[in-house]
Design a protein around this nucleic acid. Structure first.
Lengths: 333, 333
DNA sequence: TTGTAGGCGTTATCAG
DNA sequence: CTGATAACGCCTACAA
């Protein structure tokens, strides 16, 4: 591997000049620039961005930490940050936490050692010490999907409370009285918790008693949704409608309901959360809360880049609109 | 940010010793080790892996290049390589090519500049010059999903030809004579091409005339599958069964067929390829060719790591088994 | 417009 | 078991 020194010798200039033609071509006389470029060609010079990062303390790499790339919402937001980062000449290191705090902490630490310029994190615990250490040590980062209303963290997400409320209200207005919820475990997802708060508040506003037996906390997965639905249907007095805290669970719940002999949507109304692409391709098409995942990712990246520039910046929180999309999986009683 | 030099001064030792307690703790006397560790604590020392990479020419980072993280198969294989890499203390930089060769080339080049230790690539063009330049310059990499039977590239994938054959044969045995294919564009996917070869060979073996009008090349997406199915059904003599070169297209095709008034699977049999998780959650459950995506990713990573160790190694190709999974989306004529 | 030279944080070689 | 010191490849004042 040849270095700028080799190029410099070959072209009969100094390394500084070679560096300039790489980074600030306009600042060097055309004739010498050509000379250098030619020299780079003959010695098959390859730029070493690692050395650059070492010298400049900027790697043009950011860490993207999500629970599980498995889930299509996260794939979408990942695309959003990737596309934005790409247009800013930076790449992403992707890590899955699988909803485990230790993994999240471990990832953040090793990526910091790798000197990433910043982080975009869908956290498992918005009160964790890693996150706080990031702000203390002024490492730029933005939370995705969560929306702390205040606090020291920058974030972009949707109003999860409102989403939960809207989903539930839709079911209430269809005449349902017994409405269950299949939720991601609150201990690992503040999003899920907030959606549940919305659900509860809605029930309260419509004078429907809250029944704790109708709440199932489970894994954010197809299987989790299916199993929970089956358990729910084994109850003495099962619900006629269920709100799931994400679409993947909702899809699983649909399968669970059918395997118990119910026909959809007549016997069971289901509403999800996310509006992943596939949601409108299944039958019945899934009623859900739309979340602009791709745009969230893009906006999150944009915010991160601005944070990385003016390191001074105070935290900013952006709450995007989420809306109810009524499709075929919900039905009047 | 303090460095090993600060630590060394504080502990009254040399930087070499500090480096040793970091990398080879056993080789330093316990008392001095403790001294050093204590010093690291008081000056809040953070290890700089970038500097290490610069010195050792090893970054513990690999590039993972895929068409689109959007597609659940790629999400699965991505998890596979991530999990394997993680257990070997290395991280991945993820890049989407969106099936564009220029993006693939650009990504490979910028990641090389970042000095990644190797690549795992699902390529858009197995004959491209970037790939060849990688072998020339001895950059370790392995192709995923593709399976060149020979050649200079290491690869792990499935037998796409056989998969296409099995899918088609299943339809033939159900009595179908007019069998269409919705394929990813051959120009950007050798996998799709090979699956088509299998499809054609099967038709030939069963003495069914090949009709070029029943081949639709389109985007690897839900929408692509839907639109193609609609076009197919507008034909004079539409098929009674369709093989789609991936599940995402198949799911789209199902929707397209239904929107044209067909009922599934009676009026139209559909078989996919991949066996993504959701395939067994839709109704009717999708008949498809199973591909062990997660394991492929893991195996690909394993192979890459062995390549990175013994740089000498000749290319090795691993072909994993793919199998037909018969479910509800296919039906006798 | 171009050159000189020090620095970035760690590893690795070679002595001691 | 420990220390000195030269790399590693590029950037960036500062000079010329």
């Amino acid at each position: 591997m040849s270095t700028i020194l080799d190029v410099a010798k070959l072209a009969g200039v100094s390394t500084a000049t070679v560096s300039r033609v790489i980074n600030l071509p306009q600042t060097v006389r055309e004739s010498t620039r050509k000379k250098v470029q030619h020299a780079m060609g003959v010695c098959n010079y390859k730029y070493n961005a690692l050395a650059r990062g070492f010298a400049t303390k900027k790697t043009n790499t950011i860490g993207l930490i999500i629970p599980n790339i498995n889930n299509p919402v996260f794939a979408e937001s990942t695309r959003g940050v990737q596309d934005y980062a790409d247009s800013n000449k930076t790449q992403i290191i992707l890590g899955n936490t699988y909803y485990q705090y230790e993994k999240e902490e471990g990832l953040i630490n090793t990526l910091r050692e790798k000197q990433v310029d910043g982080f975009i994190i869908t956290t498992t615990n918005p009160k964790s010490i890693v996150l706080n250490s990031l702000v203390e040590e002024k490492v730029p980062f933005v939370l995705l999907y969560s929306t702390p209303k205040k606090g020291a963290f920058s974030a972009v997400g949707v109003d999860n409370f409102k989403g939960g409320y809207l989903a539930t209200e839709h079911l209430v207005k269809l005449g349902h009285k017994r409405i269950g919820m299949i939720a991601g475990k609150f201990s690992i997802s503040d999003r899920s918790l907030h959606r549940w708060h919305g659900y509860r508040q809605c029930l309260k506003n419509y004078n429907i008693d809250y029944d704790n037996k109708l709440l199932f906390q489970t894994n954010y997965s197809l299987a989790g949704g299916k199993v929970s639905m089956e358990k729910m249907l084994a109850l003495q007095d099962p619900p006629t409608a269920v709100f799931c805290s994400n679409d993947y669970m909702a899809l699983g719940a649909m399968k669970g309901a059918r395997e118990c002999g119910l026909s959809l949507p007549q016997d069971m109304s289901i509403v999800g959360f996310d509006d992943i692409q596939i949601a409108s391709y299944v039958v019945p098409r899934l009623t859900t809360i739309h979340q602009p995942a791709y745009e969230m990712g893009k906006l999150g990246a944009k915010l991160l880049f601005s944070l990385m520039e003016e390191k001074t910046g105070k935290p900013v929180q952006k709450m995007l609109a989420s809306s109810l999309v009524v499709r075929g999986s919900t039905h009047g009683v």
